[in-house]
Simulated scan of single mutants.
Amino acid sequence: MNNKKLLGLACTSLIAGCLLAPVAQAAMELPESVKVPDGHKVTLETVGKGEITYECRDKADAAGQTEWFFVGPKAVLSDRSGKQVGTYFGPPATWQAQDGSKVTGTQVAVAPSSAGNLPYQLVKANPAEGSGAMSGVTYIQRVALKGGVAPAAPCTSADKGKREVVSYQADYIFWAAK
């Protein structure tokens, strides 16, 4: 093989490695509880940017106490180049592609991320509705988190019913069986 071909193969391998590095890197650094089981492959990577609504409510298990309660998310899902490929909303947690296909899911696990950010999350997807980008998705991971935690504003009995919206960003990685 000549030097040009060897250089071409090396460059191709380097580019492929760089494109897969974010997934491989993220998968290696995640806590075990939120890793996708063996036998699955990444089918779609998105960046979700949006907001989460919280409401001040009575604590379910503590009479007379209040807390910020997660009401639901609303985010735009974009590919790595910034092009919108779908939306995320709830409840129930729903990821919908631009082609109309969508999935909901059941949370399998969460694990702490860094302070001030939502936790990592692993969701087992229900069968997709419609055919398209979400067809065959079996798991969804939430990683690379920025913000989204309950407001720092007080939540007292006088604040019950008050809603606060916080910004967040997260990568949603969609997996399917190999």
Rank of each mutant, 00 (worst) to 15 (best):
Q84D: 13
A93S: 15
G64L: 02
K74W: 11
S81V: 13
A63Y: 06
G82Q: 00
V76F: 08
T87H: 10
F89I: 00
A97Y: 03
A97V: 02
S78R: 03
T94W: 01
W95T: 00
P91N: 12
Q65V: 10
V71P: 04
G86R: 02
F69T: 14
P92H: 08
L77T: 05
G82E: 02
Q84S: 13
S78Q: 04
W68H: 00
W95F: 13
V76I: 15
F89G: 12
Y88H: 15
A75H: 07
A93E: 15
G72A: 01
T87R: 12
S78I: 02
V71H: 01
S81D: 12
Q65L: 15
P73S: 11
Q96F: 09
A97W: 04
S78K: 07
A75R: 04
W95S: 04
W68R: 06
F89Y: 14
V76R: 13
T94K: 02
D79Q: 09
K83Q: 12
A97S: 10
A93L: 15
G72H: 00
W95I: 09
G72M: 04
Q84P: 14
A75C: 02
K74G: 12
P91I: 08
G72V: 04
R80Q: 12
P73R: 10
D79P: 11
Q65S: 14
V76D: 14
E67K: 07
W95Q: 04
K83E: 10
E67C: 02
